[in-house]
Design a binder for these strands. Structure first.
Length: 1084
RNA sequence: GGGCGAUUAGCUCAGUUGGCCAGAGCGUUCGGUUUACACCCGAAAGGUCCUCGGUUCGAGCCCGAGAUCGCCCACCA
């Protein structure tokens, strides 16, 4: 029986359920429910298939996700969905990061804005013994719960196929246990130590920062040239080497040492003035002294070759600015600290932790700063105010020689954005410079990506690893290597509350009463240490207590790390605290727990099946800014604790910039919430577009538009330039006489949304690409469904008769499957997306469907091939566009319930597309003859269409034509003429080698045929113009080929097949040229 | 200061190991409502591949120099 379309739509037919436009909002939530109900993303280590795993780079719970996250997670989801379909045991582990300093800061800021009790109040409570710490942490916990939920919702809206049952948080119980275990092992192994040195101090959040948490920003400052009086001892005054020189015993020489500095206020902590020993005019002053103005400290002039010798003509900016005298402030400058170490200078810290000037944090008491009338007004000032005061003092006393403007880079806290203060303090360090960490990480690099270097001993070949850590694109291996080669020890303690508290106990004050029975206390600790319950360091050294005399020890330098203080070793803690030891108040750097992520999410430190199966993970997908902060540390930790890499591949994707090439940031309001895009374009559209933007470049620009909240129209916002030089959307936008607030307006506080002036969502026309494509896929499927007559096609199964169209489209499909496989294996997401796009839209829709349109409803073969192509295309597209493809899969399953496989193309049935198998196309499908022949048809169709447009033939008119075809191709052209007739809208009259042009016909040359368009030759001038244009092009080509072949070196040196190719081309082009010229001739 | 990247059509970007006339999407122009899709169909116009020099039979691609922009790293005199 033959079913016609007229009898088709059954009342409940799925095709009838598909509206003519794809509306994502109607589909996305339902598909998510379906996947969840099928538990489609859950994986078990014991499942079949080659293991494939990805751990999500855990987003910070500080804020909702932006488009950069959307890109990052889309790519991971493409990989995971593809791996799942390819039959792998694929898992994607989701989670979030507690982001210590960032979250604590943002919560404190929010509390302050709301006028509620904020961090400083809780700190006061804590000091008063009212448990402010726990109360504040509870506030942060609330924030975390809220944002973790929001992030999870965003990821689900994007369609991320995470195994939600395994969701982790860097501070949950399992992850906390991993952190304690890692800390304990590293401490026991002597890789964690306590050190007092200059750290990057954030005076606002009042915590130390790691080197890479400091951002350099250019600021306009000044160079101050300040005169320090050179003094000599009063004749007869007593000089004691033991104590500091008494200023009263010194008198001015009348000479000055002029120091140059950008930070005048730190002069209060100067303990020397340095000159370069090679700086002849000044070096002779070495050994003399200056009296430090304001504080009256007598400090030596020392020689150190760090000092830059002034040179006005130098290329070096410093040499041009230098005075030759360098003030040395060991407590407030890292370089000065080093100089101080070399010369054994005292360290005078003149600041409190909030960076105000203070006499109470390391100012020598014998200088009696509190009795100094010059100093008095400066004490207590902020560093900025102190700078002004010091400068004024020098001016008032005639000691300010000069002030020059100077633009330079200053380190700022990446959180509070204030200048970082080098600050002298006690901190915990991880000795990443140890070969067990840094060396192992470097040696884990894949050999092909290592770069010869003076700094790295790659003499040890990797231990028979087939491949090591591999970066895509490869250039990022260099970043990784260079970072490790210049590594410094990692400051891991933070003076925060939100984080993993350091599991170390010690005595806070030496004066506290000692345990009564020291001997038994020592024995007890020794026993615990032997049992692996504690580890002990004394003055930074790991100690064996057998030979240790606790009685003699300074208990403030005696550190006891407890293995599991929150768990099994709680009793140990009780004993320690009973004996007056207290827990370190600091927490660990956020990245310490992030660094364990590929381990901790898999259940480490236990030996879990997850760890065995999915660690190392398959690939880490991230942005390049995080190579140093995160990638490096995961590599070191996984290798150290587990002896293997955390992942084999690292894929670094682009950063998304706004339309002006600026980094997207919260403060500029140019960051885009993926939910806004899902709102305007749909999730699939966003995902597909992001994937097709992902080439191996560094950055991509994404011009951001806005949705007018009044009308829903997309508007191009007006931009303004901020004082800092950023281009941002004006706070208030006006469109059609109505106003709305931009996200910059909201972020900057310059505009507040109201009912009349609502906040506008962001969008971008970039995503139109994906939106259109989703709609195209939707409609092509609708067309197919209304033409697939499953029952009829099934009956005719034995009588399949594929024609050129079928051979061609299956060949194209097979090539597309290969392209997708290759692209995804190499993380070439744009290639994957483009291959799908071109196959679906250009080949399947524009050519195949258009060609079979008149016949497919009656033609079982065409129906079967169409069903197969559609099936395979939905599979190929699913990783990029999961929602629309899943919805259409359902419809296709209804319309064509059993196998859609055809010879050479295996398409296993599946109820859900998410669990369907990736298509496999056999080589036999690749049909070069069909591709060539179809190519000829395309050429003929193109030429006729072009002529129709040129000759202004209305699109619906059918024209008549004849064609003169060489005998060699006449047969196949004849066989396939129906395709061209359908696509170019003509009816054929006469064909063959001896056809003559009818009177008044226009001529088209294409595909080796001379095509005569009946009755369209009237406008000879238009025809002539077209032919002349073609003639010129051909003549140019001929000349080109002739020139190349006339070049003896080309013929001699170029590969033979290329030369032959050129000869063939020349012959063919000459023939075409002759035809065109003959035609022009005939035209008269 | 060191490193990385970018510069190709009006815009946003592709261009695999050098090899026919450098491509796509958007935008522009022209023509189209044939019941899959106007988020569509057909056609067209549009490019000194940043500049200069070099290697090569042949350069958008390789080498050198320069210009402009961006990012990462770097101890703020």
């Amino acid at each position: 029986m033959t079913t016609t379309r007229a009898t088709k739509p059954k009342p409940d037919a799925p095709a009838g359920a598909l509206p003519p436009q794809y509306n994502p909002a109607d589909v996305e939530a339902e598909m998510n429910r379906r996947w969840q109900a099928a538990n489609a993303y859950a994986a078990q280590p014991s499942d079949d298939g080659e293991p494939f795993s990805i751990v999500i780079p855990p987003p910070n719970v500080t804020a909702a996700l932006h488009l950069g996250h959307a890109l990052n997670n889309t790519l991971q989801d493409v990989l995971v969905r593809h791996a799942r379909m390819a039959g792998k045991n694929a898992v994607w582990l989701p989670g979030t990061d507690h982001a210590g300093i960032a979250t604590q800061t943002v919560v404190d800021k929010r509390l302050q804005q709301e006028g509620k009790k904020s961090l400083k109040d809780y700190k006061r409570d804590e000091a008063d013994g009212k448990n402010g710490r726990d109360a504040f942490i509870a506030k942060v916990q609330d924030w975390k719960d809220e944002y973790e939920q929001r992030i999870t919702d965003q990821l689900k809206a994007m369609g991320c196929s995470c195994d939600w049952g395994r969701q982790a948080f860097t501070m949950d119980d399992a992850r906390s246990r991993a952190v304690r275990e890692a800390f304990f092992q590293l401490f026991k192994d002597g890789l964690i130590y306590r050190g007092k040195r200059l750290v990057n101090w954030d005076p606002v959040t009042q915590t130390a920062l790691a080197d890479d948490e400091v951002e350099m920003e250019e600021i306009d400052g000044n160079f101050y040239y300040m005169k320090y009086p050179i003094v000599r001892p009063k004749p007869g005054a007593e000089r004691s080497e033991a104590s500091a020189p008494n200023p009263d015993d010194w008198i001015d020489t009348g000479e000055f040492a002029t120091v140059a500095t950008t930070r005048p206020e730190t002069m209060l902590g100067d303990t020397a003035v340095a000159v370069n020993p090679d700086d002849a005019p000044r070096a002779k002053l070495i050994g003399q002294f200056v009296k430090l103005p304001i504080v009256n400290r007598i400090v030596p002039i020392i020689g150190d070759d760090y000092v830059v010798i002034p040179d006005e003509d130098s290329d070096d900016g410093k040499a041009r600015m230098a005075s030759g005298f360098l003030k040395v402030t060991p407590a407030h400058d890292p370089n000065d600290y080093d100089i101080g170490q070399r010369h054994d200078l005292p360290i005078v810290n003149v600041m409190a932790p909030d960076a105000s000037i203070s006499k109470d944090h390391g100012w020598p008491a014998d200088e009696q700063p509190e009795n100094n009338p010059d100093l008095q007004p400066i004490l207590g000032l902020s560093r900025e105010a102190a700078r002004k005061a010091v400068v004024q003092w020098f001016k008032d006393h005639g000691l300010m020689q000069e002030i020059k403007p100077y633009r330079h880079a200053v380190g700022h806290s990446y959180r509070s954005h204030v200048p970082v203060e080098p600050y002298y303090s006690d901190q915990w360090y991880l000795k990443v410079t140890d070969d067990r960490l840094k060396g192992t990480a470097l040696r884990a690099m894949d050999e092909s990506q290592r770069e010869a270097s003076d700094n790295t001993a790659f003499d040890t070949k990797p231990e028979s690893q087939q491949t090591g850590l591999t970066f895509t694109p490869p250039r990022y291996a260099k970043t990784f290597q260079a970072w490790h080669e210049n590594l410094r020890d990692w400051c891991i303690s933070r003076q925060l509350w939100w984080g993993h508290r350091i599991p170390v106990w010690r005595r806070d004050h030496a004066a506290k009463q000692l345990p009564e029975d020291l001997a038994s206390f020592t024995a007890q600790i020794m026993a615990w240490q032997q049992a692996g319950r504690v580890a002990v360091q004394y003055r930074g050294e790991f100690v064996s207590l057998e030979s240790f005399e606790l009685q003699d020890a300074d208990l403030t330098a005696f550190f006891v790390a407890v293995h599991d203080p929150e768990g099994e070793d709680a009793d140990v803690v009780d004993v320690l605290e009973f004996h007056g030891l207290e827990r370190d108040p600091d927490v660990l750097d956020t990245w310490f727990s992030s660094a364990l992520w590929p381990l901790s999410t898999m259940g480490w430190p236990d030996d879990t099946p997850e760890l065995d199966t999915w660690n190392p993970t398959s690939v880490l997908c991230t942005a390049r800014e995080i190579i140093t902060l995160w990638v490096s540390r995961m590599v070191m930790f996984n290798l150290y604790f587990k002896g293997r890499l955390p992942f084999k591949d690292v894929f670094i994707h682009a950063m998304i910039q706004d339309g002006h090439g600026q980094k997207m940031s919260k403060s500029l309001g140019n960051g885009v919430d993926p939910v806004d895009i899902i709102h305007s374009h749909g999730s699939d559209a966003m995902r597909f577009t992001l994937a097709s933007m992902t080439t191996h470049t560094q950055d991509v620009r994404l011009p951001v538009d806005m949705v007018d909240p009044h009308t829903g129209e997309t508007i191009h916002p007006d931009f303004i330039t901020t004082k800092a030089g950023h281009k941002v959307a004006a706070p208030i936008q006006e469109h059609n006489g109505k106003k709305c607030v931009s996200s910059y307006g909201l972020a900057s506080g310059e505009a507040t949304p109201t009912d009349d002036m609502p906040l506008a969502r962001n969008t971008s026309e970039k995503f139109d690409l994906g939106q259109r494509f989703a709609n195209k896929v939707w409609n092509a499927t609708r067309f197919a469904l209304s033409n697939l007559d499953h029952a009829g096609a099934h009956e005719a199964e034995d009588a399949l008769s594929p024609q050129l169209t079928e051979r061609w489209i299956l060949s194209r499909l097979a090539r597309t499957v290969r392209q997708c496989d290759k692209a995804l294996a190499g993380y070439a997401f744009a290639e994957y997306a483009t291959a799908c796009y071109d196959f679906f839209w250009r080949d399947l829709c524009d050519w195949y469907i258009e060609a079979v349109k008149p016949t497919v409803a009656e033609n079982p073969t065409q129906q079967r091939v169409l069903a197969a192509c559609l099936d395979a295309a939905l599979r190929l597209l699913h990783p990029a566009m999961p929602f629309v493809t899943e919805r259409l899969w359902e419809a296709l399953n209804d319309a064509w319930p059993d196998t859609r496989s055809v010879d050479g193309l295996m398409l296993q049935p599946s109820e859900l597309l998410v669990l369907a198998h990736w298509p496999e196309a056999a080589n036999v499908l690749i049909d070069e003859d069909a591709e060539a022949e179809f190519g000829r048809t395309q050429e003929i169709v193109g030429a006729i269409r072009e002529a129709r447009t040129r000759l202004k033939v209305p699109p619906r008119d059918t024209i008549e034509l004849s064609s003169e075809e060489p005998a060699a191709i006449a047969k196949s052209v004849a066989e396939n003429r129906w395709i061209a007739e359908t696509l170019a809208g003509f009816r054929g009259r006469e064909f063959g080698p001896s056809v003559r042009p009818p009177e008044g016909a226009a001529v088209v040359l294409a595909g080796g045929c001379k095509i005569f368009l009946h009755g369209l030759g009237g406008d000879t001038s238009a025809q002539r113009a077209a032919l002349e244009k073609k003639r010129d092009e051909l003549a140019k080509s001929v000349a080109n080929f002739e020139k190349r072949l006339g070049n003896k070196s080309y013929v001699d040196k170029a590969p033979a097949h290329l030369v032959q190719e050129t000869r063939d081309q020349l012959a063919a082009t000459r023939q075409q040229l002759a035809d065109v010229e003959a035609q022009l001739e005939a035209l008269g």
